[in-house]
Structures are given as structure tokens and as C-alpha cells.
């Protein structure tokens, strides 16, 4: 039972992070390898707002959420916008460079020590006993809930929201979208904002649950195989991919070797690339896009 809970929690973490990769890739065909860093930035923002809004945890969280959305939009406006029309690979490398820059800046601003935004906000994190004998910490439970809500909201937005439909349209054919009056920059900025927002929510909840160090980037990087296994342009795929990666990781730690935990996602990724490079639910022709 505990194993099952662990799988669900880890998969939720991966799923919540992976949807950020999917959002940006689906809309602008850019792979954002700075997603892990942006996620971490979200939790550091919470740390900062927690100290400036001390005593008002709700306000602190709301401010951090708004800030992370803004960060995503700013990243697009000031950096990625310049890379539109360039080779997809140059854009990917730019995100890599952005990741390195952010990593350096975060250590400069917040130092590399382990920190606990949960304490700063005055939250405690009691474990909840589940029927069947498993236990789950409060924030891990909240994380599972947040993942479910985020996915529901994203599905709804992309299916029925006018800007959601526009985001899908821009992803399919940017030129036609522009000819239909859709401002591509607005759509891309929105995608970056939403992606950073969902990533940051994941980062905040992880740091509330288990503290904040700069190793969090690795979690962000491991969520990437989840997105790719499911298909980089499919939200439902990200959910399934996260489940596969999460389960494989938890089971291999439990039964084979704890050291494997950092490799298993990538082993699955390679297997997937060999068998079905476009992922479980991805669109096949994406493969030829270089």
C-alpha cells in the first residue's frame, strides 16, 4: 500500500512538471530544458514572499503564483521571442543557457543551503493515515490534488477556452494562425507563463513537503522523460508517461538498487525513443521537425 502511495505521489510530481514541457512544446515547438530551473525559481519565490508577507501565508502563496506567471511571460518576451524563426535547436540551447544562468543566480540570491519555506510560512506537515495502511504527508496529498486540478483545468481550457483553442491552433499552423488575426507572441507568452506557473506550483509544493535545495533541478529533468514517453505534444500522454516513469522509479528503488533512481527514467526514455520516438500519444509527423 505504501508503495502504491509512493508511486502516486511521485507520478503526480512528474505529471505536474511534465505538463509544462508539453504546453510549450505543443504551442511553439520549443523544448524548454530550463523548466527544472524555472520550477525551482518558483519555490524560491515562495520563500521570499513568505518572509515579506509573514503571517499571511495565503497572500504569500498568491504572490508567488503571480510572480512565477510573470517570470514565464518575461522569459518569453525578453529571451525566447528573439529565437522565434531560428532553428529549433538554437532555441533549445538557449533554454539550456537560461537554465545555467538561473542556477547561478539562484545560488547568488538564496544560497545553496537547504531551506524550508514551510517553516517560513508556519505550516506543519503532518502525515495522514490512509485506509489500507499507507501514510501520506499533507503536502504530498495536496500535490496529488493540485496535479488533478491542474490537468482538469488545462484540459478544459484547451478544449473550450477561446485562448486555449488559439493556443492549439498556433501549435498546428503558426502562419495560418497569424493570418486569422491571432497574435503569436501573445499565445507563446501565455504558454510560457502557464508552463512556468504549473512548474512553480509543483516546485512550491515539493519544497513545502520536503524542503528546498538546488538538487530540485534533477527532479525537473527527470520529469522530461515522462513528457516524452507520453508524447511531447499530448497532455494525456504526459499523465500516462508520468505514471510509467514514477512507477518504474519507485519499483526499481524498492526491488533493485536505490542508485538506479536517477537513471531509470532515462533508460525508459531510450527504450521509448527506439520503439516509438513520438511517444505513446504523440503525433507521428512531429518526428521530422528538426
Amino acid at each position: 500500500m505504501q508503495l502504491f502511495v509512493n508511486i502516486i505521489v511521485l507520478s503526480s510530481i512528474y505529471a505536474l512538471i511534465a505538463c509544462g514541457y508539453v504546453l510549450i512544446y505543443r504551442v511553439s515547438r520549443v523544448l524548454n530544458l530550463a523548466h527544472g530551473e524555472l520550477m525551482m525559481l518558483g519555490s524560491y519565490l515562495l520563500l521570499t514572499t513568505a518572509s515579506s508577507f509573514s503571517g499571511h501565508p495565503a497572500a504569500a502563496i498568491a504572490a508567488a503564483v503571480v510572480l512565477s506567471l510573470t517570470v514565464g511571460v518575461l522569459v518569453y518576451v525578453f529571451l525566447m521571442r528573439k529565437m522565434t524563426g531560428e532553428m529549433a535547436l538554437a532555441a533549445v540551447l538557449t533554454t539550456v543557457a537560461l537554465g545555467i544562468l538561473l542556477r547561478g543566480l539562484m545560488v547568488l540570491i538564496w544560497s545553496a543551503q537547504q531551506q524550508y519555506p514551510g517553516q517560513a510560512l508556519g505550516f506543519s506537515n503532518p502525515a495522514i493515515a490512509l485506509p489500507g495502511g499507507g501514510r501520506i504527508s499533507t503536502f504530498a496529498a495536496l500535490l496529488v490534488l493540485a496535479t488533478a486540478l491542474t490537468y482538469a483545468a488545462l484540459f478544459f481550457f484547451l478544449r473550450f477556452g477561446r485562448w486555449g483553442v488559439r493556443m492549439r491552433a498556433a501549435g498546428q499552423n503558426p502562419l495560418l494562425a497569424a493570418q486569422r488575426g491571432i497574435n503569436l507572441h501573445a499565445v507563446y507568452a501565455l504558454a510560457w507563463g502557464l508552463s512556468t506557473l504549473t512548474g512553480s506550483i509543483a516546485g512550491m509544493l515539493i519544497s513545502l513537503d520536503s524542503g528546498l535545495t538546488n538538487t530540485m533541478v534533477i527532479i525537473g529533468l527527470k520529469a522530461f522523460p515522462a513528457a516524452l514517453v507520453g508524447g511531447l505534444d499530448s497532455l494525456a500522454g504526459a499523465l500516462v508517461g508520468a505514471l510509467i516513469i514514477g512507477a518504474a522509479e519507485v519499483l526499481s528503488i524498492q526491488y533493485i538498487d536505490p542508485l538506479l533512481s536517477d537513471v531509470v527514467p532515462f533508460l525508459i526514455l531510450i527504450a521509448m525513443l527506439v520503439v516509438r520516438p513520438w511517444g505513446l500519444f504523440g503525433t507521428r509527423e512531429e518526428l521530422d521537425r528538426v
Partner: peptide, 25 residues
């Protein structure tokens, strides 16, 4: 407004969504 020669509709959107996506001032 241009109706292009090729790729003139969004292939993975439904007809209703195709009509909802354009930006109208």
C-alpha cells in the same frame, strides 16, 4: 483576410473550433 492556397484549416481542430479560433476585433 487571406484564405491561403494550402493548409487553410487547422487539421486537428473541429469545424466549430476552427471557427472559434480566429481573432475578431
Amino acid at each position: 483576410v487571406l484564405v491561403p492556397e494550402r493548409e487553410k484549416v487547422f487539421p486537428n481542430l473541429t469545424v466549430a473550433e476552427n471557427l472559434a479560433a480566429p481573432f475578431a476585433p
